[in-house]
Nucleic acid binder design. Structure first.
Length: 496
RNA sequence: CGGGAUAUAGUUCAGCCCGGUUAGAAUGCCUGCUUUGGGAGCAGGAGGUCGUGAGUUCGAAUCUCGCUAUCCCGACCA
């Protein structure tokens, strides 16, 4: 094996480990354009599973997919003052529409005569273009609700980027809904939060805290922002999804009104909600270990890999009489299974490589197993293996995949619980926050106090939990900084 | 945008301080043989405008200046 390079261990340098893992597990790589990534086939396959699972859940909620343009007229972004303030600093602007040959013979230059009358903004999010369109779609209460989603790319010109976690261009879905009443819109924003939480926990095996954002962390232009927050293995928080109740802000900015049953004009109520390729970062930092990626089975492009161990073609032929039917049986059970008969790399290499790629279950069969009627079953999450009778192994594999899925979730949840603690004084807070994790504290509800805490410690309020966390009560108290009354403990953490 | 560093083979890096024929290593890649139950071994081979532009010099990867790009720290952001 000579100088094969292992991953940097997490304990040594967590962010180095992350960067290496993303590249070595073949998920993504840096592109020629600063801040933009190439998502490689293996990484994209995982994203496609995320898309498929979410898309199905959206459709169950009555959502339809649509597509709105990449480019947004600059004037649209001026309509909603608060909204534009949130994004103005990170927008890419299209100013010209033509290139021409450089008269000095050095390739092409931007044709100065081709300046756009109105500059176009590459979407940082699509509220404005969508609401300018919804205006044309809505005239009566009969047109409501409108429940649209789009899968697309957006661009936010970030200063500092990291693969999946923060890139200048990223993939996401953005849902945009229009409702007749405030109650319906608020309820819908909440429902979509539940969709996200259900998806995160049951498919990605990531435990999340459902909550509301404090005013400082709220989406620009929203009246209320709901979120799901997850804890990474280094104790930092990562926002995994958001759902906004936008009130009538965009309806008023774009003059979207409907005629009610009572023949009165009313402004429409709105929501928007989204998750992005950042979920890939959450996935990696929740489950993976020093040997590589760990994928929960529900998300793994390959759930089971079968590795026959052979020296000669005859050996493989013999093994195939057993392994090929097994492959078919597993496939028939709906398992995403791969049979690796490649003779160009050794079993040892394959074992290490499938571990790096996070394949949940690995089956190995060689001459000894063939004689004994057994097969070696290795699970990625625990790195354990056992030799089992081949007869009826499919049933075991089906159950094992579910067990791995559950274990991934439980491990992550145990970690979060172990690193979530109540803190009552600000002095204690300043010490505890250095250790990472979530701190449950009383806060007086003012942006000023949150700002002060952020300046002192870099910690922010990740959310105001909607329900009590396991092992903790929702209770009134006094703000740890000002001593003023607090309605309940909120979650503080250092965030990604 | 401030502060620091780096730029040499596909990748990671050595060489630079102290200028001198043909710029090295590891890994990866290609070929052949031998191998295959935890990242195989041996032999051979291909692969470089030394980021870019100027300057100093008989001579520059090496010294000087400009430019560009990347990375780290800060600021900004979710």
């Amino acid at each position: 094996m000579a100088n094969f390079q292992k991953l940097t261990p997490r304990s040594e340098d967590y962010s180095k480990w992350y960067n290496e893992l993303v590249v070595k597990a073949d998920l993504a790589e840096q592109s020629a354009v600063r801040g933009c990534m190439v998502i490689k086939p293996y990484g994209y396959a995982i994203w496609e599973t995320i898309q498929a699972e979410l898309d199905r859940r959206f459709k169950e909620k009555g959502v339809k997919n649509a597509y709105f343009p990449l480019l947004i007229p600059k004037s649209f972004l001026s309509r909603e003052a608060e909204h534009v303030e949130g994004f103005a600093k990170e927008c890419a602007v299209v100013t010209h529409h033509r290139l021409k040959n450089d008269p000095n013979g050095k390739g092409v230059i931007v044709d100065p005569d081709a300046r756009l009358e109105e500059e176009l903004i590459i979407r940082p999010t699509s509220e404005t273009i969508i609401w300018s369109t919804y205006k044309n779609w809505i005239s009566s209460y009969r047109d409501l609700p409108i429940l649209c989603n789009q899968w697309c790319n957006v661009m936010r010109w970030e200063m500092r980027t990291r693969l999946f976690l923060r890139t200048a261009e990223f993939l996401w879905q953005e849902g945009h809904t229009a409702h007749a009443t405030k109650e319906e819109a608020e309820d819908y924003a909440r429902q979509m939060l539940d969709v996200y939480a259900d998806f995160a926990e049951n498919v990605m095996a990531i435990p999340v805290i459902k909550g509301v954002k404090s005013p400082n962390e709220r989406f620009a232009g929203a009246l209320n922002t709901y979120c799901i927050e997850a804890m990474m293995q280094d104790g930092k928080a990562l926002q995994a999804g958001t759902s906004h109740f936008l009130g009538q802000n965009f309806a008023k900015s774009f003059d979207v009104q409907y005629l009610s049953k009572e023949n009165k004009y009313e402004y429409v109520w709105a929501t928007s909600w989204g998750v992005s390729t950042r979920l890939m970062g959450a996935l990696i930092m929740t489950h993976s270990d020093d040997n590589g990626l760990v994928l929960p089975p529900h998300l793994a492009p390959t759930q089971v890999v079968i590795v026959p161990i052979f020296k000669k073609q005859e050996d493989l032929d013999k093994l195939m009489t057993v392994v090929a039917p097994l492959f078919d049986k597993l496939k028939a059970r709906g398992i995403r299974v791969k049979l690796d008969t490649d003779d160009k790399s050794t079993p040892g290499f394959k074992f290490a490589d499938y571990e790096l790629k996070g394949v949940p279950v690995r089956l190995a069969m060689g001459g000894r197993d063939l004689e004994n009627g057994t097969i070696e079953v290795a699970r990625r999450d625990t790195l354990t293996k056992e030799t089992l009778p081949l007869a009826g192994i499919e049933e075991h594999i089906v159950n094992l995949l579910e067990e791995v899925q559950k274990n991934c979730y439980q491990k992550a949840l145990d970690y979060r619980i172990a690193n979530t603690r109540e803190v009552n004084s600000y002095d204690e807070f300043k010490e505890e926050i250095k250790k990472g994790g979530f701190l449950l504290c009383h806060w007086d509800g003012t942006p000023e106090t949150e700002e002060q805490i952020k300046n002192d410690t870099k910690a922010t309020i990740r959310c105001i939990p909607l329900e009590a966390l396991p092992g903790h009560k929702q209770e009134e108290g006094k703000c740890m900084v000002t001593g003023k009354p607090s309605a309940g403990r909120v979650v503080f953490a250092i965030a990604y």
